[in-house]
Simulated assay, not measured.
Amino acid sequence: MSASERTKMIAGEWYTCIDNDLEALRVIARDAVFEHNTLSPRQRGNIGPALSALLGSAGERARIEAPFHCAYGFNIHLGEGAFLNAGCTILDTAPVRIGQRTLLGPNVQIYCAEHHKEAAGRQAGLEIARAVTIGDSAWIGGSAIILGGISIGDGAIVGAGAVVTRDVPDNTTVVGNPARAVKRG
């Protein structure tokens, strides 16, 4: 018996995202995101009830502003007091860990999925999932993009609009496209 596409995704192997079981999981996430994005702030609280139940974990006082989008939700882990500003998108085909007291500016995008390099592979929906880890007390500026497989250290700063294609050490500031270090702790 061959492994399911979800099993391959979780294992970090090539899988096809064109799969009924994965689509069913994405529908659950879209419903939870819709509720989160359409509830009044007083009803929603820090994280809408359905989205809160879907997340892998969320520390006390973690907050996600609306609008928000994610692919699956269950791969997202938010530390105590983590804050995601309006417009954030997390395509969580792999685990995304956001540390305690870490701040994401508006429209930050985290992409765990990497599509196949060959056209035929892309047409077949082939992708591979790579985890993202952001340490404690980091600050990710508005509209930054973080690619899969990246680790951003404790206290690091990613400048607004940066595209992070390499790991960022603790207490380092990176800017630009691709992001490059301008200050080390």
Results as ranks from 00 to 15, higher is better:
S57W: 14
R63S: 15
E23I: 12
I90R: 05
R6T: 11
R30M: 09
S57E: 12
E114P: 00
C88N: 06
E65I: 07
G185A: 07
R44Y: 07
A144T: 03
A50Y: 02
E118A: 12
C17I: 05
T93Y: 07
L103K: 09
V158Y: 03
N107S: 08
A120N: 09
A86P: 02
I28Q: 08
G87S: 01
R122G: 07
A3M: 14
P41R: 05
Q123L: 11
I146H: 02
L91S: 05
L54H: 10
I134Q: 09
I10F: 13
I47F: 15
L103C: 05
R63W: 15
E13G: 00
A53P: 11
Y72E: 01
T93P: 02
T89A: 04
R184A: 09
T7C: 12
E35D: 08
H116L: 02
I134W: 11
G155M: 07
G99M: 11
D136E: 14
R184E: 14
E35C: 09
G81D: 11
Q109E: 10
T16Q: 03
F83R: 06
N20E: 15
F34N: 02
V158F: 07
F34L: 09
I140D: 04
R63A: 14
V168K: 00
V33D: 04
A53D: 14
E35R: 02
I98K: 15
S4M: 13
G135P: 04
G155R: 04
E114N: 13
